[in-house]
Each structure stands twice: as structure tokens, then as C-alpha cells.
Amino acid sequence: MLKRRIVQITAAVTTNSYFKGFLEGTVYKGKSKVFCVPGLNCYSCPGSLGSCPIGAFQAVANSAGFFVSYYLIGFFLIIGTLLGRFVCGWLCPFGLIQEVLYKIPVRKIHFPRQLHFLKYFKYLILLIFVIYIPIFVINTWGIGYPAFCKWICPAGTLEAGIPLIIVNESIRSAAGALFTWKIAVLIFVIILSVKLNRFFCKFMCPLGAIYAIFNKVSIFRLNINTHKCIKCGKCSSICKIDVSPFENPNSLECIRCGECRKACPSSAIRLGIK
């Protein structure tokens, strides 16, 4: 847990280390922004040194003359095949924020098994708000708009919107009904993340949905030694994502946090390359 937390904090700080941006209410303008970071990290965050892959995908789709981004599909194929949802568990700053929120000591929600189908909602968000609207809903100049960033993304509101509004006078004066809506979405996600572990990752994150598609084939994965496994179910009971590692070690929902590995009494679970 400590090792993972150190990696999460290091990833979040190194990709958002343009501290001057937070003081001046501006964003980093260096060439490193040509590269995408693996996690959900708004490129309008004042500290961000890289680009958000979901924001970048929509930005290219929005632009007249591109339609679909080869650059971003290639990026998703490479990162997904190498790491799968390891990105969610170890590298995503918004995943870290949700885990910290879940530490707040209030009564937690046990999500009923009958409602587990809601995990498919994130795929719907991916299809409608990240792919369909940015590509196909265009204005008279042939330009679309980043529907997920504009209407949903709580990471953008928290990491970029709020810091910029606090420091930048001109942005503050331009905030209106849309910003109020985005704050409402953020509050909704924060409250549910306090009550339910990684609420946004489980039900809403389109980037998690993309990486989930690769979980079954990713090179970095969970491996179960079937000779050692005694099927005690301890890995399933400790899993905060409600996955059953000994039955389905590379479930689409598994974020490779490795908690199951530590709980296994027979050391049958290995997290690594295969």
C-alpha cells in the first residue's frame, strides 16, 4: 500500500510540477505538452506538464480536418497493452484523490450486487461524450466540442477550473451557469467517492473504460498460481473494486492495486509481467 501510495504521489506531483502556474493562474506552455500522460489529468491544470489523453482525443476530433485521432488511438493501444488498468491503480492523479477522499471516516456504502451493471455506464459515457459528440456533432465551421470535458469531467473542474478561478480575475468574471453545473458534478462525485471507493473510476471514467478493454491482454497483469490457490476467497473479500481475483484475475474492473496479493495466505497471486 505504501509503495503504491508513493508511486501515486510521485506520478501526480511530477506530471503537475509547474508550480508557477498555480501562483499566476496560467498554464505551462512548454513542448512537453505534445505528450499525453497515462492518467486523467486536465491539460488546463496550471501545474500540468503533459496533456490529458481524453481531452487530447476530443481536441483532435473537434478540429476540422482530422475526424479521428490516430495519435491518440495509437497511444491507447500502447499504454493499454503494456499496462491495462494498472494506470488507474498506480498512476492516475484523480484515482489518488478518490482514494484520499475514501479515507474520510464516515459510514461507507456497500454497493449491492444487483446494481453492478451500472459499471457499464462508463462505456456509455465513452461512446457518447468522448467519441460520438466530439466527432459527429459539429457546427457550421466543421468544429465539434469536447463534450466530456465541458459537461462532465470533475478532474478538470478540480485540477484546473477551481485553481484558475481563484487566481485568474478574467476567468473568474467569465464563470457562469456552466461552471455552476460543473461544480455540482464535482460535488456529486466527491460525496459518492467519500462513501464508495473509487466511485468515478467504477462508474464514470471513460479513460478507465478504454484501459479496461485491454485488461485481458495487457502485459502487466495479475497471475494466479492455481497449484498454490486454496480458493479461500480472501482476495475477493478484500477487493475494494468488487472483483474476485482467484476466479477472474484480469477482470475488466481490476485496477491492479495489489491488495489481493497481500491478503493471499498461500502467496498464489503475483502482480507482474507475463
Binding site: T26, V27, Y28, K29, G30, K33, C42, Y43, S44, S48, G50, S51, G55, A56, A59, Y145, P146, C149, K150, C153, G156, T157, A160, G161, L164, I165, I171, A174, A175, L178, F179, W181, K182, I183
Partner: peptide, 10 residues
């Protein structure tokens, strides 16, 4: 990415 995306921040 090097310009503040007003739509992205609401």
C-alpha cells in the same frame, strides 16, 4: 494544451 481550454474548465 498550451492554452487554457475554457470549455474544459467549465
Amino acid at each position: 494544451a498550451i492554452n487554457i481550454c475554457l470549455e474544459c474548465i467549465g
